[in-house]
Structure formats: C-alpha cells, structure tokens
C-alpha cells in the first residue's frame, strides 16, 4: 500500500521527464530554445554549490513568509470569523488587496525598504499567501453550527474555551486546505522579489544570471529546482495535516 503510494507519483514524474526529452528530441529543438532533461544534469553538477546556497535562501525566506502568513492570516480570519461587523468591513479590503498583482508591489516594496532584501522578500511571500488562510479560517469559524457553541456555553464555558476546544480544531481541515495553496503562492512571492528586483540571492537570482548569460539549461534547472522545493514543502504540509487533522480523512468503505 505505502509502496504504491510512493511508486505511483515517482513513475508519473519519470514518464513526464521521458515525454519531455522525447518531445525536444523529436522536434529537434536546440537547447537555447527548449532545454531537455538531459541538459539539466550537467547544469546541476556545474553549479551545485550555487544551487545549494541559493536554494536554501529561497527556502528559508519562503518558509518565514509562510509562517507570517499563517500567524497574521489566522488572526485576521479569527477576527472576521467571530464578528459580523469586522467581516463586512474587512472583506472588500482584503479582496481588493489580493486583486493587486504582487509583481506591481515588488518595486514599491523595494523602494520603501531599500537594501533590506531578506525583509522585502519575506514580505512579498507573506503578502501573496496570507489571503487564502484568512478566508478559510474566517469561513471555518463563522460556519460553526450554533449547537456546537450551545453545548459548551450552556455549561458556562467561556468564549475562549469554545474556541480552543471546538472552533479551532474544527477549522483545521479548512486551514490545511488553504495552507496547501499558500505554500505554492509563497514560492511565487519569493521568486517574484528575487527576479523582478534582483539582489543576487535566491534561486530567482540564479535564474536571472542564467538569463543574462544565455545559459538556458541553467534557467530550466532553476525552474525544476523550484518545483522540487515546492513539492517538498507541500508534502511537509500534508504530513502536518495528517498529524493534526487526520480525523477529517474519511476511511474508504
């Protein structure tokens, strides 16, 4: 069972790489038009040190941005989930903020905090990823059936007891659903900053230097490295979900 769980996606990835290689070979594309998987190996071995250093920079800034998004998003979600007034007040603001393409925010942020590259990158990763978390937490809390509240309130429990014992755990499945979306968004945010406002750090900067040097295999190698990091972080979230909200998963009958 667990063997199948690991083998199936691995085989799917291998098939995908094979198709990609075959397509490039069949079309006779040179590697400055479309690199093929066989070009990636040399790129990784040539620049493996850069990949490690920059990959780590991208990873930690994404994770910090994501943690911020979790804290702030959950906070906003709680405020909106418990108060109708706050929900009415904040929703249009949040939707408007979310509708602004973050690529346009990058130069503004870069100007506001000149030189604070790490901070700027974390900030963009945070801004792009907190929205789904805030919305899911607020929906989870505001759709809590009143009976759940009544069961504890009728015994004299405080609002915060209701929150910790019922509302919070009950919202966890929605929260993790949103976190899976937020993980990939946070990567996009980090790389936006690294590419649009280059400062020589992160995989985005490596991508940019590949572009400057017309090193197409390097550019593709960066993309694949980003995909791998994204997959790793995604499965970290899946593992956390299994631990904290595994009860929501229905047993197949």
């Amino acid at each position: 069972m667990s063997w199948r769980k690991i083998a199936t996606p691995l085989i799917a990835i291998l098939v995908f790489l094979a198709l990609w290689e075959a397509l490039v070979w069949a079309m006779g594309w040179p590697n400055y038009r479309m690199a093929s998987p066989s070009d990636l190996g040399p790129a990784y071995t040539k620049y493996w040190e850069l990949f490690l250093v920059n990959g780590w920079q991208t990873l930690w800034r994404t994770v910090v941005g994501l943690l911020l998004a979790v804290i702030v998003g959950t906070g906003i979600g709680m405020v909106m989930g418990f108060s109708r007034t706050m929900r009415d007040a904040l929703y249009p603001l949040l939707v408007g903020f979310n509708a602004i393409p973050k690529a346009t925010v990058v130069p503004i942020v870069a100007l506001m905090f000149v030189g604070a590259h790490d901070f700027n990158t974390v900030l963009i990763a945070f801004m792009i990823s907190f929205f789904p978390i805030a919305v899911s937490v607020s929906i989870g809390l505001s759709t809590l059936e009143p009976e759940y509240r009544d069961i504890l309130r009728s015994l004299g429990a405080s609002q915060s007891t209701v929150f910790w014992k019922i509302a919070l755990p009950k919202t966890l499945p929605e929260f993790f659903g949103a976190l899976k979306v937020a993980v990939t968004l946070a990567f996009i945010g980090t790389n936006l900053m690294e590419i649009v406002s280059p400062h020589g750090r992160g995989l985005g900067a490596l991508f940019d230097s590949g572009k400057t040097n017309s090193d197409y295999p390097l550019m593709f190698a960066v993309l694949i490295a980003l995909a791998v990091l994204g997959i790793v972080l995604y499965y970290v979230v899946v593992a956390l979900e299994k631990i904290f909200a595994g009860w929501a998963e229905r047993q197949p009958h």
Binding site: E145, E147, Y148, D150, I151, L152, S154, L155, G156, A157, T161, K165, I166, P169, K170, A245, W247, A248
Partner: peptide, 25 residues
C-alpha cells in the same frame, strides 16, 4: 442538552466526546 444534530467532535473518540462536559463543569 441534545439536539437533532448530534454535534459530536469528530476528532475525539466516543468516550472522549461523552466526557467533554466534565472538562467544563
């Protein structure tokens, strides 16, 4: 209180669900 919707906490066992009020009272 008991309602039409049994509102049991899905992450708790039946025993822990039954014992919930004792955590408050």
């Amino acid at each position: 209180m008991a309602f039409q919707n049994p509102v049991l906490l899905e992450w708790r066992s039946i025993l822990k669900n039954v014992m919930l009020p004792l955590e408050i009272v």
